[in-house]
Design a protein around this nucleic acid. Structure first.
Lengths: 146, 146
DNA sequence: GTCGCAAAAGCAACTCGGATGCGCGAGCCC
DNA sequence: GGGCTCGCGCATCCGAGTTGCTTTTGCGAC
């Protein structure tokens, strides 16, 4: 809970959302988390406050809609939400590919170095692929999970 | 239904599974399909035969366990099963991968041609990545969805 | 300050894919 | 062919995600 409440509030307001208690808590939770969290994770972390499951879920969806969070599927049938750090990967224009490495065991997500994955404009591939307008996800076991 | 029944049977037996009618049907269905199928897809295709949902599910799980199929999650919270063509995808060395292209609009899934995506054993990447023991997922819009 | 409206919270119920417990029937080894 | 075991079918459960509806509340306007 390091981020000042007023700052959180203004971020919500700027995004066109009302600054409600649950949204502040959810956003703060996402900021505090260093990695992607599942809906259940967030619920658990906010358990003390007694927010409803549906409320948390809608909060996460709302925050995703306005671009404060990013929702991703890491392959274990759970939605994961991650803070969108402005500038890092998000606002690279079309044409760039930014691969993520996803651990299939622990769910950890890491950004792979540029150049780790290259795509070739082979014949038969979809146009979006040849144009590089794609998102690359690499699944495997991270070093911790052997 | 091109594959001879006896061949299917022996493939099951070799894998250590009993050659039951439902398993033969499921395996045949997977062979006939050119791409990944969801559990629901397989059920629908075998609807005439009247197999139970749970049976089909267990068959798919069994076939996956013994290595005849591969189970993957392509991001829409549905398990997809795909025939493991012996040698083709699985035991290719480092640098080669079997990428799936997932349309983020219509959900269509296609296998990209081999060589469309290559990975480099860059420093800092997880060991599994450098060993090529990863699953690559490319997300974007397919040609039909612009 | 307080009024009013629309947005959002809370509650509960629902959907749907996936998983499981159990008894009967079928496959396979001998 | 006999019998043991595996697998099918049926029903049921489970859990993540979703929705309808009523009450509450944020917030701009007065």
């Amino acid at each position: 809970m390091a981020t000042p409440k007023a700052d959180l509030k203004s971020r919500l307001r700027d995004a066109g959302l009302r600054a409600t208690a649950s949204r502040l808590a959810v956003l703060d939770c996402m900021i505090a988390a260093q990695g992607p969290l599942t809906h259940a994770d967030v619920c658990e972390r906010l358990d003390d406050a007694g927010f409803d499951r549906a409320t948390v879920y809608r909060n996460l969806a709302d925050l995703t809609d306005v671009g404060l969070l990013r929702r991703s599927d890491l392959g274990d049938h759970l939605w994961r939400f991650e803070l969108k750090t402005e500038g890092a990967h998000e606002d690279h224009g079309p044409g760039e590919v930014h691969p993520h490495f996803v651990c299939t065991e622990c769910g950890a997500v890491a950004c792979l170095p540029d150049g780790a994955v290259t795509i070739a404009a082979v014949k038969g591939a979809p146009r979006a692929f040849r144009a590089g307008k794609v998102d690359i996800q690499v699944r495997g076991a991270c070093n911790e999970c052997v």
